[in-house]
């Protein structure tokens, strides 16, 4: 079965690529193939959602692409860098300069204010904050009034917006978001997703989001479906309905789904 997903013609060069990416936990009889040879490209300047049911391998794929975990075999590229070959020191530098993260649990540091949380990655890298970029982020994410607050004084949606700002402050090549709306009510979730989309459209960032929620996936420019550790489909310009249909198709064990116009 050919699960290779080819990039739509005319899209920009890929920001992230996976080639025969495999991740196996355990050995022998007990081996679990979380990823069974994945080939996929993610375009720069796009908002892509990776969607699949629980245990499909979507989180594992993201961890490998972001250099948080080591692959069993295969390659993952960030731009032209093969991150599967990097050591911890290089990976740390990569995470500092070229990758941003948004977590389901927000993961803000409780003892720092919103502003200190946002600027932390730049400080860790020993750089200085670009005040213009900070102002742009803060106004885009609507955080002007919240900068001096600590996480405990912010709502869930506000905390996640701070986390998005933190992920973008170093102007990374790509931002990975892991179920960013998983801990939010639907209104705050919608707000956060709009902000993510605006970050892509207005600020020119690249975002890859992992989710199991079709309505969240609908905010993306493209949905990559994953099931049983393999790419199981690709939806361009998804709607909540088409995303849900794609997810349902996976549950009925359809081999692959291809909807939407191939431009």
């Amino acid at each position: 079965m050919d699960t290779t997903v080819y990039l739509p013609v005319g899209s920009s060069s890929p920001a992230v690529r996976a080639r025969s990416l495999t991740k196996t936990y355990g050995t022998g009889e007990a081996a679990v193939h979380a990823l069974a040879g994945v080939d996929v490209d993610f375009a720069a300047g796009q908002f892509t959602a990776i969607m699949g049911p629980s245990g499909s391998g979507k989180s594992t794929l993201m961890h490998l692409l972001a250099g948080l975990d080591t692959a069993t075999s295969g390659q993952a590229f960030l731009g032209t860098t093969d991150i599967t070959r990097l050591g911890d020191r290089e990976l740390t530098r990569l995470r500092r300069d070229r990758v941003g993260f948004v977590f389901q649990q927000f993961n803000l540091l409780p003892m720092f204010t919103a502003e200190q949380n946002i600027t932390l990655p730049v400080e860790l890298a020993g750089g200085s904050v670009d005040p213009e970029w900070l102002a742009t982020l803060v106004s885009t994410l609507g955080l002007e009034q919240r900068l001096s607050h600590r996480p405990a004084e912010l709502s869930g949606g506000q905390q996640q917006r701070v986390a998005i700002a933190r992920a973008l402050i170093a102007q990374p090549d790509v931002v990975f978001a892991d179920e960013p709306t998983g801990n939010l009510d639907s209104r705050s979730g919608a707000e956060v997703l709009s902000f993510l989309r605006r970050s892509v459209r207005e600020l020119g960032r690249t975002i890859i989001m992992v989710t199991h929620d079709p309505s969240a996936a609908a905010y993306a420019d493209r949905v990559v479906l994953i099931a049983d550790g393999r790419i199981a489909g690709d939806i361009t310009d998804p709607t909540p309905e088409s995303a849900l249909a794609g997810l349902d198709a996976l549950r009925t064990l359809e081999p692959a789904v291809q909807t939407g116009p191939v431009a």
């Binding site: 948080l68 911890d88 020191r89 740390t92 993961n107 932390l120 860790l124």
Partner: peptide, 16 residues
């Protein structure tokens, strides 16, 4: 644990 992991994820080196 989670906080340390977050810091590592956003670019804190092991030495730091």
């Amino acid at each position: 644990t989670r906080e340390s992991a977050t810091l590592r994820a956003i670019g804190l080196s092991k030495e730091q």
